[in-house]
Lab assay of single mutants.
Amino acid sequence: IINNLKLIREKKKISQSELAALLEVSRQTINGIEKNKYNPSLQLALKIAYYLNTPLEDIFQW
């Protein structure tokens, strides 16, 4: 999986903590996703895309 979450999140000036709060997950979860240590569920990936107002395929590429 190619993961552009960190790049997109930083472009939008959103911290890991802010995104985690919006998604109701821990900051460690966001960190793990960004470091490719954790693959989000489809539901979480869709929520990330929604809150970042970015197409899912721009954030994650399988």
Results as ranks from 00 to 15, higher is better:
D58M: 10
I2Y: 11
E34K: 02
N36I: 04
R9H: 00
E10T: 11
I59E: 00
E18A: 10
S41M: 04
K13W: 05
Q16C: 03
I59F: 05
I30W: 03
A21S: 11
Q28D: 15
L46H: 12
Q43K: 12
P40Q: 02
P55E: 06
I33G: 00
Y38C: 13
I30E: 02
N39V: 14
I8A: 06
T29I: 14
N53M: 08
N39M: 15
K13F: 07
N31I: 15
I8Y: 09
N4G: 04
T54R: 04
N3A: 04
Q61H: 09
I1P: 09
T54W: 05
G32K: 13
L19Y: 01
I30Q: 01
K35W: 05
K35A: 15
N36G: 15
A49P: 01
A49K: 02
S17L: 13
I48D: 00
E10G: 06
K6Q: 12
Y51V: 15
R27D: 12
N36W: 07
N4R: 09
K12W: 05
I59K: 00
L23A: 12
T29N: 04
N3S: 07
I48F: 05
E10I: 10
I1Y: 14
W62I: 13
T54K: 03
L42T: 07
L46N: 14
N53R: 09
Q43L: 11
E24S: 12
L56K: 03
L22S: 10
Q43I: 14
A49M: 03
L52T: 04
Q16E: 05
I8F: 08
A20T: 03
K12C: 08
K12H: 07
K35P: 01
S26I: 03
R27P: 15
I33D: 01
P55W: 04
N4S: 06
N36P: 03
S15G: 07
Y51W: 10
L7D: 13
T29E: 08
K11I: 10
P55K: 07
A45P: 03
Y50D: 08
I1N: 10
N53E: 15
A49L: 01
E34N: 03
L42W: 10
K37L: 15
K47S: 08
N4C: 09
K11G: 11
S17C: 11
I8L: 06
I33H: 01
R9P: 01
L19D: 00
L56N: 03
K6C: 06
L52K: 01
P55G: 05
Y51F: 13
Q61E: 13
Q16H: 05
Y51K: 06
L42G: 05
L22R: 08
D58Q: 11
I14F: 08
K6Y: 07
T54A: 07
N36V: 04
K11L: 11
L56V: 14
K35S: 14
N36L: 08
N53Q: 13
I1A: 10
E57N: 12
E34T: 04
D58K: 09
A21G: 11
I48L: 07
A49E: 03
L5G: 00
S26H: 06
G32L: 15
E34C: 04
L42M: 14
G32Q: 14
Y50I: 07
P40I: 08
T54D: 02
R9V: 03
S26Q: 07
Y38K: 12
I14Q: 04
G32N: 15
P55S: 08
V25I: 10
I30R: 01
I48K: 00
N31G: 09
K37G: 07
N39I: 13
L19Q: 00
Y38Q: 11
N4Y: 07
D58E: 15
S41G: 12
G32D: 15
E57L: 09
N53W: 03
K11R: 12
E18P: 03
K6F: 05
I14S: 02
K37P: 03
K12V: 07
K35R: 13
L52G: 00
I33M: 05
E34V: 05
I30L: 13
G32F: 12
Q28I: 07
I59P: 00
I59D: 01
D58P: 01
Y50H: 12
K11C: 09
K6P: 04
L23S: 07
G32V: 10
I2W: 10
T54V: 11
I2Q: 11
A21P: 01
L46A: 07
G32T: 10
L52R: 00
I8V: 09
K35E: 15
Y50L: 10
T54S: 08
K13H: 12
K47Q: 09
A49H: 02
A20H: 05
A20R: 01
N3G: 04
R9A: 02
S17G: 13
L52S: 01
L46Q: 13
N31E: 15
E10N: 09
K37V: 13
T29L: 15
K11Q: 14
I48P: 00
A21L: 10
G32M: 14
L23C: 15
A45C: 11
K37I: 11
Q61I: 13
E24V: 08
E24R: 13
T29A: 09
A45I: 05
L44N: 04
W62F: 15
A20F: 01
L19M: 05
N31F: 07
K13S: 10
D58S: 09
Y38D: 05
Y51I: 15
S15A: 08
E24A: 14
F60E: 01
Q61K: 11
S17Q: 14
N4Q: 07
F60V: 02
I59M: 05
F60H: 02
S17M: 12
K47M: 07
W62A: 10
N36M: 12
I1S: 11
I8R: 02
A21E: 12
S17R: 13
A21Q: 12
I2L: 11
E57T: 10
L52E: 00
I8C: 07
E18M: 10
Q61N: 11
K35H: 14
L22V: 12
E24L: 10
Y50C: 10
L22W: 13
D58R: 08
E57D: 12
I2G: 11
E34P: 01
E24G: 15
L22D: 08
E18T: 11
V25L: 05
S41P: 12
I30Y: 08
A20C: 04
S15D: 04
A20M: 04
I33L: 10
R27K: 15
A45Q: 14
Q43D: 14
Y50N: 08
L46V: 10
K6L: 06
L19I: 04
N4H: 10
I1F: 15
A45G: 07
K11P: 02
Q16N: 03
E18N: 09
N4W: 05
Y38H: 09
Q16P: 05
L7P: 08
K47H: 05
Y50P: 00
K35Y: 10
I2V: 12
P55D: 08
